[in-house]
Design a protein around this nucleic acid. Structure first.
Length: 306
RNA sequence: GGUACCAUAGCUCAGCUGGUAGAGCAACGGACUGAAAAUCCGUGUGUCCUUGGUUCGAUCCCGAGUGGUACCA
């Protein structure tokens, strides 16, 4: 068999490390396009606070999944993954390389390795479970999951309402324990993932974060947030850069306090991202300026596959 | 210049008139299967301002010094 192997170049890294710039340069070299894997750049209502690629960047290289959804839409990892795989089918006809870039670890992993098949749950089930949490608190969720799925309960993070809610939702929707769906199977992919991590030392990253937040404020982040204030309860707006400004608009923080909090929360987000990426030993780490090094690495990986 | 109050973790502060200290936030480490920029878990990192004294023993009591804050001049 001599079917040509396709390569998905995964470009990951913490927020503000310089993924967008690197991705554009790399996509140009590879004569291909960019698929975004950023769970907040999906939404067209958010522009400044999500550091969406600039008009020039978007013009230089075609991008996909940038602002293709509304914050009012329901969108999740599974739907995104299906969308991405479908898009790959057509894009890999034009090029054997594709650049996937973003900072959402779960989404990147889902594209590369897949998720277990799970049936849809409904909005009403979700609200029903939310109601349990609101009225009975964490223990209400714990006792229900312990009863309907002791196996999951034994290994789950039972302090985390999100995990328990999800498990109980699936149980209500299917009548089966959540754990029975969790096979942990890797889905087959008809492309090879080449994982590249972008890294900067902590001090430098913090400085870039602070500068970027200041820049966002100059670009009018407050006005953007103000325009979205009425929709602040949308999940997509539970996002660094917006939630803190909503607190300011609510009179809970001064503007300076809100800006400081955006910087802090962004740092903490970057830290969580690094924790996620670090555990995946397949990543090869590069300084964002070392495009040459990345290209050599890609050639190596392609060579091994030949 | 005088008087009063304060000085404890990176920050804001607790600490029973004596037995070498703790909260929140930050920081650091971790988890993560359809809400993921979300959500959750773990860890105290310290010349208790300096210096004399009292005491078996001082973050704590007394004296002096230094720095700060407030009020009075």
């Amino acid at each position: 068999m001599t079917t040509p192997q396709n390569f998905l170049i995964v470009l990951a890294g913490p927020t503000a490390v310089g993924k967008t710039t690197t991705a554009v340069a790399m996509a140009k070299k590879l004569h291909t396009e960019i698929v975004s894997c950023d769970s907040r750049q999906f939404y067209r209502e958010m522009t400044i606070g999500t550091a969406v690629p600039t008009a020039e960047e978007l013009k230089a290289v075609p991008h996909h999944f940038i602002q293709h959804k509304s914050i009012a839409d329901h969108y999740d990892v599974a739907t995104y993954t299906a969308d991405a795989l479908q898009l790959f089918d057509s894009l890999f006809h034009q090029s054997r390389f594709l650049v996937l870039t973003g900072g959402s670890g779960l989404f990147l992993d889902a594209v590369c390795h897949g998720l277990d098949e799970l049936p849809e749950t409904t909005e009403s089930i979700r609200q029903q479970v939310q109601e349990i949490f609101l009225t009975e608190g964490l223990s209400g969720l714990q006792s229900r999951v312990a009863a309907c799925d002791p196996e999951y309960y034994a290994q789950a993070d039972i302090q985390n309402p999100r995990r328990l809610q999800r498990a109980f939702e699936v149980h209500l929707a299917t009548g089966r324990p959540f754990s029975s769906f969790r096979q942990g199977n890797k889905n087959h992919r008809n492309f090879q993932c080449v994982k590249i991590g972008l890294h900067r030392d902590r001090k430098e990253l913090i400085q870039r974060i602070d500068e970027r937040v200041n820049q966002m404020m100059q670009q009018g982040l407050l006005q953007e947030a103000n325009g979205l204030y009425g929709q602040r309860h949308c999940n997509a707006l539970n996002t660094v850069g917006y939630k803190e400004l909503f607190e300011y608009l609510d009179g809970k923080l001064s503007l300076d306090q809100a800006i400081e909090k955006i910087k802090t929360n962004t740092r903490q987000y970057a830290k969580r991202q690094m924790t996620w990426f670090r555990k995946d030993k397949a990543y090869r780490w590069f300084d964002p300026t070392d495009l040459e090094g990345m290209m050599v690495f890609i050639e190596q990986m392609v060579g091994e596959r030949k």
